[in-house]
Nucleic acid binder design. Structure first.
Lengths: 340, 340
DNA sequence: TTGTACGCGTTATCAG
DNA sequence: CTGATAACGCGTACAA
């Protein structure tokens, strides 16, 4: 099993042809006699020769690697999202004989990413999130490294793959309104993420389209784990019928708080989330939410990036679908809550 | 900013020295005149020259990459563990100017791993888990690729990094016994994982050392999400005081089931887990469990691997610490439950 | 259709 | 202490 050492040269001399011919037989570029080609391919699989990716890379100025950034902090609830992205990226990459290299990157920590670029370890990058002040994207633009971003960005020239959060939130809100719910409170999270704005936009559009008064849609900016309790208390002093959470971690906190206040969901108040997670599914009652396929996001991102790398044109923005999951937490009882 | 193209040759000609000298100045290998060296280093940082890692790799038969395997399935509860491992590995790797390449690998799906090896994309591998029938490990042993495994293995010659699960489970069990609890049920999970055996061993050792009758420690093999309900029901027909879960996902199911049966934890029955997770911490009541530092595991694994790659000797087995987290779910009330 | 010769950017060898 | 020169393994004009 001395397959560790066999090179293209070995194959060539063994078959009395030149390296060139072997190279061509493998890559399919340039014409090779059918019979010669068959002989070469047979020998190759017989002696399981595998081209040295490093040398190949040196010669073509390519690495056959793509990089993916993952958060360097513990936003625990979000982790399944990135894991699934990663899985999608890996799937697409390995299908194209590419490998995936990870880079832990934060809002302001882009050291690992820089190393990746400076050392030319990758042919392109998938950014798994976008920021309003997007250091990673700026770096990649400046260095002219091909990349795609999962998420949305205002900045022109950035190839984006995203779910249609705005439309999704619009849909979910509209369906709740159709059920008869009129008064909402929307608990937003970190405005540093672009997605926060899209979600808000979808919500307000739905409210406008339904011609509901503006003060029927209370919006609380910049909620975090500490402020949720206070915000829920404020909410409960109003006529709010349904609390919309932008984020799982917020939603979990809200549910905790409601339980502590002895409020029943959905009888006393309804709750929905603009993002899905296994935690919420397991909850009793199950929580109405949006469902996105993170793995598909990763796959699409990687495929798009690979196209860019091979010089193809790609659309600047690709929006993927979603599902509205109506569940118990927003169930309205006929004749009691339904108002039309 | 034309740093994209500058090579060692450019530096050499610009300074009227040879490539060799420049190379030596950077690597520190071989003697270079102090003044020459200073001049070179200055020029380099001035024009921010970065050596081409690919070329370097070709010349030294090295990639400056390490691979890490992560599960290709959605064992959701466990994901934070792998994420943290990954973070640890990345930390250590980038500190050593190495990058990390991920490979989605399952019990019987080692395609991606094989590609990594055949294409010589990495200098070594970190396996984030071990199996009783360990295909990845076998492959790596056969191909003589340096690797370390996070977890434990019976197979000789495998460098292992693990928490001391056996001792940890022994400790936790002993502390519960000390509290006065005598009758346990241990719900085990997939016996394909080595760690299952270590945990069982720790438990039974503690029971023996406390000289408790063998039938005070009921052991249920191979629990899964579907069988938990049935097993808990069986358990409840006995005098069991405390249910020990090997796994978070099992523990979550157990808690669900107990709640449905209107049993209060810890008053009616006590529950503890042999593994920690944020889910269990958030639970009301909080769950007694063991705490392991997965990131530290990753760091240690990567550091060990890097040593192996550079030819140093490393211990075959490294055991990391743990913490026993006594929480509400096993609280005993003085004068009622305490029997000594 | 096939082969020759050179380049890719470094490190390693062996002289000087 | 320093410098040519040969690997490293593969792709590719250019030539035959």
């Amino acid at each position: 099993m001395e397959n560790r050492k066999i090179t293209i040269d070995d194959v060539a001399t063994a078959l009395n042809v030149s390296k060139t011919t072997v190279s061509r037989a493998i890559s399919g570029k340039g014409r090779v006699g059918a019979e010669t080609k068959a002989r070469i391919l047979e020998y190759i699989s017989e002696h399981n020769y595998v081209p040295n990716a490093i040398a190949k890379g040196l010669a073509q100025q390519r690495t056959y690697n793509i990089g993916i950034t993952v958060p360097d902090d513990f936003a625990l609830m979000d982790l399944p999202f990135f894991q699934k992205c990663l899985m999608g990226v890996c799937d697409s990459a390995s299908a194209a004989d590419y490998d995936v290299l990870v880079s832990m990157t934060g809002t302001d920590n882009i050291e690992q990413l820089e190393r990746l670029i400076y050392n030319r370890k990758v042919d392109g990058i998938v950014l798994t999130r976008t920021f309003t002040k997007d250091l990673p994207a700026e770096l990649l633009l400046e260095k002219k490294v091909p990349f795609v971003a999962i998420g949305s960005s205002r900045q022109p020239g950035i190839i984006q793959i995203d779910n249609d959060h705005e439309k999704a939130c619009f849909d979910l809100t509209t369906r709740l309104i159709t059920q008869g719910i009129k008064r909402f409170a929307l608990l937003c999270d970190n405005p540093a993420y672009m997605v926060t704005k899209s979600r808000m936009q979808g919500f307000t559009s739905a409210m406008e389209e339904a011609k509901l008064p503006e003060d029927y849609g209370l919006i609380f900016d910049n909620c975090n784990e500490d402020s949720v309790d206070y915000i829920v208390d404020r909410t409960l002093k109003t006529d709010v019928e349904c609390i919309l959470c932008m984020d799982d971690s917020i939603c979990v906190k809200v549910l905790d708080k409601l339980k502590r206040n002895n409020l029943e969901v959905p009888d006393d108040i309804k709750v929905a989330s603009f993002y899905n997670s296994s935690v919420l599914e397991r909850n009793i009652p199950s929580i109405t939410s949006l469902s996105f396929d993170a793995k598909e996001l990763g796959k699409t991102a990687a495929n798009t990036l690979l196209k860019m790398i091979s010089g193809e044109n790609v659309p600047e923005r690709t929006l993927l679908g979603y599902e509205v999951m109506m569940r118990e937490s927003t169930r309205t009882i006929l004749g009691k809550d339904v108002r039309r």
